[in-house]
Design a protein around this nucleic acid. Structure first.
Lengths: 136, 136
DNA sequence: GTAGATGCAAAGTATTTGCGACAAG
DNA sequence: CTTGTCGCAAATACTTTGCATCTAC
C-alpha cells in the first residue's frame, strides 16, 4: 500500500495546512484529472473561504514535490492527477474528454532506446494517444 | 518533392496575403520550432509593420489548415513547425531546449495497438521524450 | 515565537477579438 | 465590388505575486 498525500507531505517536510489537507483529500478522491477551476469548485464546497490563489500555489507545490502530475492535453487547460508508483500514459477520448490510463512496457523500453540512440539519457517523457471510440 | 506553404494555401483556398507569404517563408526556413514571439521577431525584420495579432491569427489558421503543427512542450510557450508528409516525434534536450526529431515505426505500431485494445481508433498522438546529453 | 502559508486584489503572460481601414481575388 | 484580412488597442483567460495577516510546528 502506498503513502497517501498527507503522509507524503510529512515525509517531504511540506507543512500540512488545513487548505492543503482539503486539496489533498479532493485530489485523492478524484480519478478524472481535474483542472484548477474544477478542483477549486470541489474544494470550495468543503471550505468556501479557500482562495483560488491557494489552489494554484498548492498544485504547484505538490507537483514540485512529486505528489501530483500536471498534464497539458491538446487545447485544454492544465489538469492534475495524484502521482503514485505506477507510471502510466493516457489515452484521451477526443469526443468526451474521458481519459484512460494505460501502461505499455514495450513502448517504455523503445523510448529509452530512442533516447540512447541519440546520445541522451531519458529523464522524462510524455505519451498521449487521442482516439475515437470504435462502433461495435 | 512536397508542396510549399504558398502552394498549400492555394490548394486549400486560403487567401494569400503579403503577411501570410512572409510568415510562410520564415516558417519554411526555420527548423528550430519557434514560438509566436520569436516568429514575430523574425517576421518583423522583413516587414516591421506586421502586427503580432496577425502572427497569432496566421499560425492558428495554418494549424487548422494542416500547414503547421503546434507543440506545447512542458512548461514553455506554444512552438510551431512546418508540417510535411513524414510524421515524427520529438526528443527535447532539457538543458538547452534543442529539439531532435525522430521516427520509430515500432512505437507507432504499438500505439495503434494500445488504442485498439481499449476499443479506440487512434486519430492523433503525441510523444515527447525529455533527455539530458550523455557524457562520452 | 517564527518561518512559512493564506486571502485578496493587482499584475503578469499568452492569446483572442471588435472595429474601422484596407487589399486580394 | 465584396469578402476577408490587417493593425491597433482593448479584452480575455490563466496564472503568479506583493503585502498584511494568520497558522503550523
Amino acid at each position: 500500500m502506498s503513502e497517501n498525500i498527507e503522509q507524503k507531505c510529512l515525509s517531504k517536510g511540506v507543512k500540512l495546512t488545513e487548505q492543503r489537507k482539503i486539496i489533498a483529500k479532493i485530489m485523492s478522491g478524484s480519478s478524472d484529472h481535474p483542472d484548477v477551476d474544477e478542483l477549486y469548485n470541489r474544494v470550495s464546497k468543503i471550505d468556501s473561504k479557500i482562495s483560488i490563489a491557494t489552489v494554484y500555489r498548492t498544485v504547484k507545490l505538490f507537483e514540485e514535490s512529486g505528489i501530483l502530475a500536471k498534464h497539458e492535453f491538446k487545447g485544454s487547460k492544465a489538469r492534475y492527477e495524484e502521482l503514485n508508483e505506477g507510471h502510466h500514459d493516457h489515452l484521451i477520448d477526443v469526443k468526451s474528454g474521458k481519459i484512460i490510463e494505460f501502461v505499455d512496457e514495450e513502448i517504455e523500453k523503445l523510448q529509452k532506446k530512442v533516447a540512447e540512440k541519440y546520445g541522451y539519457n531519458l529523464v522524462d517523457h510524455k505519451l498521449e494517444l487521442y482516439g475515437v471510440k470504435k462502433k461495435t
